[in-house]
Write a protein that binds this DNA or RNA. Sequence first.
RNA 1: GCGGGUGUGGCGGAACGGUAGACGCGGCGGACUCAAAAUCCGCUUCUGGCGACAGAGUGUCGGUUCGAGUCCGACCACCCGCACCA
Length: 867
Amino acid sequence: MNDAAPRPRYDFAAAEPRWQAEWDRRGCFAAADVPAGNKPKYYVLEMFPYPSGKIHMGHVRNYTLGDVVARYKRARGFDVMHPMGWDAFGLPAENAARERGVHPGKWTYDNIAAMRAELKRMGLSLDWAREFATCDAAYYGKQQKLFLDMLAAGLVERKESWVNWDPVDGTVLANEQVIDGRGWRSGALVEKKKLSQWFLSITKYAEELLAGLDGLDRWPERVKLMQANWIGRSEGARLRFAMAEPVDGIADVEVFTTRPDTLFGMSFLAVAPEHPLAVAAAARDPKVAEFLAEARRMGTSEAAIEAAEKKGIDTGLLVRHPFIQGATFPVWVANFVLMEYGTGALFGCPAHDARDLEFARKYALPVLPVVLPKGADAAHFAIGAEAFTDDGTVINSDFLNGLDVVAAKRAAIARLEADGAGQGVVNWRLRDWGVSRQRYWGCPIPVIHCEACGIVPVPATELPVKLPEDVDFSRPGNPLDHHPTWKHVTCPSCGAAARRETDTFDTFVDSSWYFARFCSPGAEAPTDRKAVDHWLPVDQYIGGIEHAILHLLYSRFFSRAMTATGHLSVAEPFAGLFTQGMVLHESYRGADGRWLYPDEVDHEADGSARHRETGEAVTVGRVEAMSKSKRNTVDPGAIIERFGADTARWFILSDNPPDREMEWTESGVNGAFRFTQRLYRLAEAVAEIAPGDVPETFSPAARSLRQATHRTIAGVTEALDSFAFNVAVARIHEFANVLADAERHAAEPGMGWARREAAEVVTRLVAPMIPHLAEEMRHLLFPAGSGLVAEQDWPVADSALVAADRLTIAVQVLGKLRGTISVAPDAAESDILAAAAAEPNVARSLEGKRIVKRIYVPGRIVNFVVA
RNA sequence: GCGGGUGUGGCGGAACGGUAGACGCGGCGGACUCAAAAUCCGCUUCUGGCGACAGAGUGUCGGUUCGAGUCCGACCACCCGCACCA
């Protein structure tokens, strides 16, 4: 099967485009913005792709899963919306421009055309009329409107801040986009830089975003957990330590702590290297200045590598303790204190914090225990190598003595508040979302900087602020910034010469509301309220786990912000979320160590592999995520060409549960291909039977086939409802075996009718998964025509046929299986117990033993407990 | 370190607390064929037995139960996420 394309009986190459055209012609998958009917709505959405130019197997898996859901729900009577679009802004287009001189717009739209053609070959039940790309001015202009509305609503801020600067991409990254100290896209070590940036106030919704997770009962637990951790709520106190002597006008240092109960165990105060007090200390002490410079050089990445190494320097400054009259403590600058968290300053209590202890040991700072473990002896308790962080009784702490940790926290906060030295607060790990990017290929931020008026929004009538076409990529930096004319405008407020904002939005902004735009892609406003109120939330969203935090959190924020500005009325955009697993493949290396593509490799029967052309031995490497660098990729286009879209879809669904990683294998594809052909042959055989009325009588084999048919309906329905597509596939396989077997009884009464019923039902059951073959089979069965499978309702199982005629009851003795008996469904318990005890093998096991207990679970099992 | 998940044949995986291994892949044997491909039929957890059967078996150890892959506790391994979060 390696070289020659299979010569199939079912000619998928002719059939697939034919049915795709037919669906298109009949408008099978069109939805209305505001439907007139009263069918329940169902919005199925897969995460829209970045138009790289080619689809990959991850896309195929994602869109196949979504298509099964969409087609199934449609058959179940829902009015389904299933749109597709393009997440089309982003850096690769600019890189193409720099490397090959092609305009980012042309590059992007060419890629979209190529990918659209590939997706169409998959036979997805998409409403293509809703398609848009985020780089369409018709889309991003509406996004600018959303931004201006958020600005007016106080949900946008411009602030000077330390940012993550990606030196390779030459742009700012959000915290979420920094992974292990490196840029998420470039992989470059991220530097710290101070810049003026636009921020969306996601922190205003921290509480809501956290609380909202509880209501998302159709989201994976782990995604919710990841978001909860990211939002990072912690309760504690903020308190001010007065400087013993003010420095540069700084009179006190504010600190956040979750352990105000341990304030009496304090031995030092530590601030981040970027903290104003550290900067002030550096101005007075060259050694501190040197320490700060070193900390900056190390950046986040080096710090991560040397995570264990805690370093600090004593500034020589002192702070007063809020509770202990006259006591002062040294102020240190420490590399483990993060400016981004809390207040960028902390008080160190080494006895009860692992980090503080490590720091105190290194610099010989005092360690005073103030919490005594339960049952420990106060006279002999001391802190050794490990800090004590559990609950206990507070000691050495004046008015807190004798309290437990919880009560002591409360008492300490009460005292701080009474003294005006601090207050109880909730602190969040979540930062505001910096959205400014110094890039061309993004949505322009619609504001104007005026000397006199400051920040002036672009008037709504002047939207969209379009990207200029004539841009120069020969210089590094932001092409919008050095465009000769684009940024020079007059101030809308005072008419003076002013400067247009040249930053563009982070592309995650684009993907934070596209699902809403799909509801009314032609609307004049960003959303048509009737349409979004009808369609949102998305009933089933499907995509990769890699978006568990970034995209999904931003979208949840956007829904709230858009609701606050009157564009929507749902807080949660995605009622159901399904995260699919990655597609993996074996990797191969040639003798010279080069990675080889799967189609350069032939497998031998003994499991070894060799190079197809040279014949040299090939090392079979790990099964891992498909990646260009490992060359372990399989091109979906080539698979569809050789085997058809249905085969690709069937294999992807059959291999394993969809939330797990799946391995793409040649043998698996072959198996799927064989099965599609087999189904077609079964339908062909049945198509020879003339349709007729329901017969008077059915032979036992015919009745048994009908039972199998209806049990398969029940089984497949249950499997599809629970996303167990691999189980649905298995049920279909079983049923195909039964249907093939029925050919032996072809001449029996009722069998012809039963086989036609079986074949007709199976077309509808497989239609969500392999829609083209389903249509072809239906066409075989009804050559004169009777509508498309895509237009049929889901079959309904006849409960009388699903129920069994005879029950097989397992019989156990002391929990061990000794035999089975067959009984009538309405048999009396006493008769069943008697039959069970009489079963020869069971009888032998019971011989000479006394039965002390008889357990009968109706319809399932008998268990004799013997002495 | 913290949090979460997963451990079932050669492989992917099934299994409301009730006949473990459905279904598929691979393998073995057979039919058809001059032959091959395709197709069809059968076998395929391990051990013993010609066989009927018997014993063992779902990462390890224990517990609950008439009965545990499934529930509970401890541990081991692997995977994922977060990670100096005060």
